[in-house]
Design a protein around this nucleic acid. Structure first.
Lengths: 236, 236
DNA sequence: AAATATTTGTCCGTATGTATC
DNA sequence: TGATACATACGGACAAATATT
């Protein structure tokens, strides 16, 4: 009666929780009150409260653990990147190719730093990863994880967590839309990864760059068909 | 036992629902199955399912109405920008710098295609944008929009919608966290943009690349402090 | 080290309001 | 009008993970 309807409870609760975090200026790691306390304070059932809290958790704002409570998460752009990429991924194949083309540009853009930063231990880890990769390929096993791990192991040592977040988001969106037939192993990937790895092991900068370029020059990463240029290209 | 541990049910259900919508290419207005059907199909309780659905509703992905069902919404990123980036923690600044460094790599990675694709009309639009930019700068007006427009106008002709969406998101996140004192106009930006523009107008590829590199070599785009390399760098 | 309390995870049941036919 | 389907909201109960004593 006196209550204004047509605003659902869990939406109001979500707003109140968000305001609570802002008002108390909670920092990453800080705990919000327990579910029972919040239920009492907000006057709602535990189910409704949880719908709001779980929404925040799935947005990466808070994280819950049994016996401990619900804490504010450290700042991350993961949710943003994921949804930005998904927001354009409705078109079937075009958007995925565009996204993979961006990944290509990013990885090539960072390869100089990769060569500079990777040390012996990093490269040894890459070698171990690759050997497992190769073994699984020879047994015709699913290899997408290994491909992912190899690439990630190259860029993780850069210390750019946001870069890792974005690359992970790209991998994840790619996995969502990847059709079954493209889950098969690609023999050429072995050779390309091995060339990259060997160049690193030999500290051969030129060979490394060449191997990276070659790895990303496959059809799967072909740029989206651009409009034909009206330019009088001076050089080509 | 056979269950994957460490993964809460509502998180798995959320992913499955999201993938269901994407893979079935559901458009705004399309209904997803009823809660009871989904409970049965996914083998989870109604509570867990609702926590996932309500999270999607709070993200603006779907909307539910009693007696009708749950329908897909036209997806917008507005809610996310307003509600997810609320913890202005001290670790956010590092992430923003890393993000801008990624933008630098992306834009530089696409500059060859930019030079190839841009035609006379594109360049003329850039010139008009720049002249407005310059005029506002000289009047000491707010210039962030013009900076944004100039950059976007370079990459829009590539036809890569995913790239545009990602760059726009980066601009928006940057704007949210940009401190007041950095909203002032930067005189050097005028000169850098003009150099880029002039190189395009003169079809001078080398000058264009040089101007782009110079534009992105400012402190604001400095790479995150990387670990010192244990490598014996052959060349530097 | 072990028992106990706390907190979240998950399920079930029930009642109510709303939309559709 | 009535009947049906659906989401909204509440409460209780137990399990699992963690913290505390």
């Amino acid at each position: 009666m006196s209550k204004q309807r047509d605003e659902k409870l869990y939406i109001k609760v979500f707003r109140e929780l968000r305001d609570y975090i802002l008002r108390h200026n909670l920092k990453p790691g800080d705990l919000i009150p327990t579910e029972m306390e919040l239920c009492d304070k907000l006057g709602v059932s535990r189910n409704v409260l949880r719908e709001a809290i779980k929404a925040m958790e799935l947005m990466g704002i808070v994280t819950s653990r049994p016996g401990r409570g619900t804490a504010v998460c450290p700042f991350s752009l993961d949710f943003i990147f994921q949804n930005v990429l998904l927001s354009t991924a409705d078109d079937s194949e075009k958007a995925i190719l565009e996204m993979l083309n961006i990944r290509k540009k990013i990885e090539l853009g960072y390869m100089h730093e990769v060569f500079r930063v990777l040390n012996y231990e990093h490269i040894r880890n890459l070698r171990e990863n690759f050997d497992r990769f190769k073994e699984r390929q020879e047994n015709h096993l699913y290899t997408l994880d290994a491909d992912h791990d190899f690439h990630m192991a190259m860029f993780a040592p850069l210390g750019n967590n946001t870069l890792i977040t974005l690359l992970e988001a790209i991998w994840q969106v790619d996995a969502i839309f990847r059709p079954e037939e493209k889950l098969l192993f690609k023999p050429e990937t072995i050779a390309e990864h091995e060339a990259i790895l060997r160049a690193l092991e030999e500290h051969n900068e030129e060979a490394f760059f060449a191997a990276m370029l070659s790895h990303f020059s496959m059809g799967k990463y072909a740029p989206a068909a651009g409009k034909p240029s009206l330019h009088i290209s001076a050089a080509d």
